[in-house]
Design a protein around this nucleic acid. Structure first.
Lengths: 350, 350
DNA sequence: CTATCTATTTATAACGTTATAAATCCCATA
DNA sequence: TATGGGATTTATAACGTTATAAATAGATAG
């Protein structure tokens, strides 16, 4: 490891140029009151010797960490959700002063813990997190502490805060309309667990659309997107044998969609002929799945990029109310021509 | 956000107790030369007012960040590999002075970038990363800078460095022996891409075991674990129609295993009757897969925990040569009774 | 009662940076 | 030749911590 004295500091540059440390600092910060020529010279020398400002000293002096933290939820890690999110965040932070640092969160502790950790230890200047709840305690805590954040998802707290959300209600409406247009008349909806805010949006959009279309609908009681794959499979297998089984389904999770397709296939039903399914898709991996299913795409990387951009503006002091974004659903319906080959999941033998 | 003055510092405690700042610092650090009674009093006051040492000031003064960084590889994110790893690392760091911070790495940049980033910006006191290569440039760079690290995987650089690795050769031997004991006589092996070190271990173990057992073997040329799922499916479908198709297979990735099973099923082959498959498994998700397949488990969380522990000892100055660990494979063969129900993947209708 | 030692506490300085206020320089103006 | 003023540079202090050296108090020995 480079010995302490090896690392160039402002003082090194000051000695090399014969200027005062203060002048060097200001020259590098593009502060006013520095002669153009001086600035040039200082910046050139800094570049030549590979000067890198000391984060700790900066942090100590300015109170700013220049770090933005993303809370990594282990539930989100399947199928590259987090990868896309991180990739989008990094894109937003590129060419800014901010570093991206990821704070892990563990399923066994309350969701507020990583936030408290960030606040207590001054790990960052702002934070991004996912999976909001209607009365999200993280949002409460952060607002109390006047700490900048942008949540991925809305809340029902009656306070204005910065967020980026996907228009799940629009997704559900779009899905229902698609199924109805394909002649389906009894639709089921698989929802995320109770505690999440986006469950409401999905349900509201779904209800609204089925009522408008005048078709029958149902919501399984105990089965949700976080259920064990086996439970979902078992439930649907059972349900398909009951009277008036659904002939169309909306599902907001792609892993669950695989279980649904497995159950359908095992019951002798062919998707696209006896049954239709619209899935919310966040990865491109499942473009490979056969039979081809209707999907509505949610661009997580774009969400990440927007979250990053808004957070920077929030840290700069903009009003939270002005930093709210709703992402539009993008249909990738099967007949629009996506995907190419069968690979994962249930295959048709011809 | 707590105003600067709100936050208690050593000075706050010094004023409250009437002691000097230095004394307070030493009392909290459990340094020698402090009266027992003084130490008690200081620590009690610190606890009462919720004193939290300022990381930046500490870092500036001591040169230590008290941070350990894990480089998050997007390739590893599928199926909870990273979650398990992070969870194990966090377990190792609990009740130590160290914070865990995750540094993202992106597929489009060289693997050395995040390491360089950590070094340049003094992001951590030590680093853990995965997917080593025989001549891994990260290992070289870190050794040159005498920067503490433990790699997940070995290298072929001829230098002693700290690592935790899974005994992939033993896994491959175990898999071959299992297949042979089930009567298989023509075995194929699906390997990771060329550049990874563990490809060699897998191949060596496989070769050794097939030679000892005297059975036929083959390795597909262009197909590997990072191949597109569709390519693997297509290759195997083609291969099964050629002369002398394999009747047993070893696969070191669970996602690929699904494609293999899909291809087998689509060719009318039943795993367990016409064909056998041994998979290296790192998640428990696929306990649900049917037909039941033979798996050998790799405990990633345990690897993470060991990586964390060894890294702390490395930072404390222990010789790298003394910090090397090989993890033993754990068989989870189907007849040992794991898993319960069909759910994801290819299902048998009867 | 003074000198010496030990136990404990404290003053000082420094890590590298930047905010503030003060100083210097150069030139134009009176 | 002063004088004012804008442009530029610099000295000083501070962020919160800890390493080092110095100081103090109390106890023991001579």
């Amino acid at each position: 490891m480079a010995r302490r004295s090896d690392r160039p500091t402002l003082r090194t540059i000051a000695e090399m140029t014969g200027l005062a440390v203060t002048t060097v600092s200001r020259a590098l910060l593009d502060a006013p009151q520095i002669a153009f020529e001086t600035r040039q010279r200082v910046q050139r020398v800094a570049r030549e010797i590979g000067y890198q400002p000391d984060r700790a000293a900066r942090h100590l002096r300015t109170g700013r960490t220049n770090v933005i933290s993303f809370v990594l939820d282990p539930h989100d890690e399947l199928l590259g959700f987090s990868t896309s999110m991180i990739s989008g965040l990094a894109r937003a932070l590129r060419d800014t002063q901010y570093h991206l640092v990821i704070t892990p969160h563990f399923a066994e502790v309350p969701s507020i813990d990583p936030i408290q950790y960030i606040l207590r230890n001054r790990m960052a200047d702002g934070v991004v997190f996912s999976r909001t709840e209607p009365k999200d305690p993280r949002v409460k805590l952060l607002m109390e502490n006047d700490f900048p954040f942008v949540s991925h998802g809305r809340t029902d707290l009656g306070v204005e805060h910065a967020f980026v959300d996907y228009d799940n209600a629009a997704f559900a409406r779009m899905a229902v309309e698609r199924l109805v247009s394909k002649g389906r008349r009894r639709l089921a909806l698989i929802l995320p667990p109770d505690r999440f805010m986006f469950r409401r949006h999905l349900r509201d959009g779904f209800q609204e659309a089925v009522e408008r279309a005048g078709v029958a609908s149902e919501l399984p009681g105990d089965i949700n997107l976080d259920s064990n794959a086996a439970d979902l499979y078992a439930w649907l297998t059972w349900r398909l044998r009951q009277p008036d089984p659904p002939d169309g389904m909306v599902c907001a999770g792609e892993v669950s969609a695989l279980s649904i397709m497995a159950a359908l296939s095992d019951q002798g039903l062919t998707v696209g002929r006896d049954f239709d399914l619209v899935v919310k898709q966040t990865s491109l991996l499942y473009d490979e799945v056969r039979p081809r299913i209707d999907a509505v795409y949610e661009d997580i990387a774009e969400a990440g990029e927007n979250l990053g951009r808004l957070l920077i503006r929030r840290i700069a002091g903009e009003r939270p109310g002005a930093l709210q974004l709703l992402q539009e659903p993008i249909p990738r319906f099967a007949d629009l021509g996506h995907g190419t080959r069968a690979a994962i999941g249930t295959h048709q033998t011809a």
